[in-house]
Nucleic acid binder design. Structure first.
Length: 426
RNA sequence: GGAGAGAUGGCUGAGAGGUCGAAAGCGCUCCCCUGCUAAGGGAGUAUACGUUAAUAGCGUAUCGAGGGUUCGAAUCCCUCUCUCUCCGCCA
């Protein structure tokens, strides 16, 4: 959520900023609601004040043993007026909140303009795409040939966009998770976390998935439960600090979590339908930081660097792009995508997305820290990034480390997790 | 699943229809005293919103959440959520 004060004091500026994100703020609706809210709130508070002072007078009169009936008669009409005013105000407040919850975060000044991923700006390329003296295969061919990856079986169990895996490929998948976790915990200073995979509406509202993006989520709506499957660990982990005040000396908080992620992928029909690129269920190692407001842009660079380190240690060629305004997520002010080279697709594909949400999520979650300079609680800044998406990492390893005979070489950093295996073959 | 108890400020914890945004203690901040250490005295110490030049005043709201009763609710009633204790079941 944006700062309502900012919207009131500098609306034109916010509108201009949001245009970079291709979002047109409904200024008329906002101004109208805001104006009515103001006058209605003043009226309501005046009525409340009157009721309070009169009730107090009744109290003191009663204590003195005076006849209070005349006072009661005076106050009789006040109740209904007040009730009506309060009802109207709360209704108005709700519409205003709905509007505010639907407005995206404003982009950082460094974010380039643009409409789609084609307008994203490349910041760097690392590594060389491998040169093969044979025609490289994609992970689907490789996985089927190796016998460990089966999309048809998964479709019988669940439907499209699922996979079953067996054997060494699963070991490799698990090795990737262990390697990433250990790197972030032992080398990058993150605290390992375990979280629920089902969360409530308040939690998803805190990070910004609700109310606007309900269609992207899997929803458990049963007699006794109203829960959603997490689309990313960002949701439960960032909400660790919801409603709390973090001590200054504890910051920055750095959390890493490995969780499954569930996405309905509504609206992506026909996109990436083959293979493991876009699934309803996938594993991700997620990085979350909670930092002091002044530190968040530096923290974004740092966090993105932590994700890059994983790619570098795995020896995977990648490029780093800054998302343009039109491609920027709802809650983000600035996002770096890391795109790994996939020989099977002959292109770079997103494997990590690292974002600075500034105080946008913190305001929704009421996540604050106590600023020693002011002694007051102030909103924290939150960041998150994939470090990395595990399923896509598996694909990347398979396609980049494939050999002419269809076997797959295990990258050195994963060897400690592979029970002595140095390659995967039929 | 059954029975019971509870939820109050940064923390502990009083308060049981009116003068309660809330006693007291702890913690924290400032000041005084005291030549170290320790101790003592005083003052202050929630958040949001509105009004405003203002972090000054003033007003409004907030005692788990949401409804209700009442002129007036932390206090009474209802619903929900969560926590604790005992029993049952269980990976």
């Amino acid at each position: 959520m944006l700062d309502p004060k900012l919207l009131r004091s500098d609306l034109d500026h916010v509108v201009a900023k949001l245009r970079i994100k291709n979002y047109e703020l409904d200024v008329a609706s906002f101004s109208q609601l805001e104006e009515r809210r103001k006058s209605l709130q003043v009226d309501t508070q005046n009525l409340q004040g009157e009721r309070n002072s009169r009730s107090k007078a009744i109290g003191t009169a009663k204590a003195k043993g005076e006849d209070i009936q005349p006072l009661l008669d005076e106050v009789a009409v006040l109740g209904d007026q007040l009730k009506a005013a309060e009802a109207e105000l709360s209704e108005l407040q709700d519409s205003l909140d709905d509007l505010l919850l639907g407005i995206p975060n404003v982009p950082d000044d460094s974010v380039p303009a643009g409409n789609s991923e084609d307008d994203n700006e490349e910041v760097l390329r690392w590594g060389e795409p491998p040169a093969f003296d044979f025609e490289p295969r994609d992970h689907i061919d490789l996985g089927q040939a190796l016998g460990g990856m089966d999309f048809e079986r998964a479709a019988r169990l669940s439907g499209a966009r699922f996979v079953t895996m067996t054997g060494s490929l699963v070991t490799l998948h698990r090795a990737l998770i262990q390697f990433m976790l250990n790197q972030h915990i032992l080398e990058h200073g993150y605290t390992e976390t375990y979280t629920p995979y089902l969360v409530n509406e308040a939690t998803l509202t805190g990070t910004g998935q609700l109310p606007k993006f309900k269609q992207d989520l899997f929803h458990i709506d049963s007699e006794n439960h109203n829960l959603y499957l997490i689309p990313t660990a960002e949701v439960p982990v960032t909400n660790f600090v919801a409603g709390s005040i973090v001590e200054a000396e504890q910051m920055p908080l750095r959390f890493v979590a490995h969780t499954p992620c569930f996405r309905s992928e509504a609206g992506s029909y026909g996109k990436d339908t083959r293979g493991m690129i876009r699934q309803h269920q996938f594993e991700k190692v997620e990085l979350v930081q909670v930092v002091k407001p002044g530190d968040s842009m530096a923290a974004l660079e740092e966090l993105t660097g932590h994700a890059e380190t994983i790619l570098q240690l795995l020896g995977l060629a990648y490029r780093k792009v800054v998302l343009c305004g039109g491609d920027l997520g709802f809650a983000s002010t600035k996002t770096y995508d890391l795109e790994v080279w996939l020989p099977g697709q002959n292109t770079y594909r997103e494997i990590s997305s690292c974002s600075n949400m500034t105080d946008f999520q913190a305001r929704r979650m009421k996540a604050r820290w106590r600023n020693p300079k002011t002694g007051k609680p102030e909103l924290v800044h939150t960041l998150n990034g994939s470090g990395l998406a595990v399923g896509r990492s598996l694909i990347a390893i398979m396609e980049n480390y494939q050999r002419a005979d269809g076997s797959i070489q295990i990258p050195d950093v994963l060897l400690p997790y592979m029970h002595g295996m140095t390659e995967i073959r039929v």
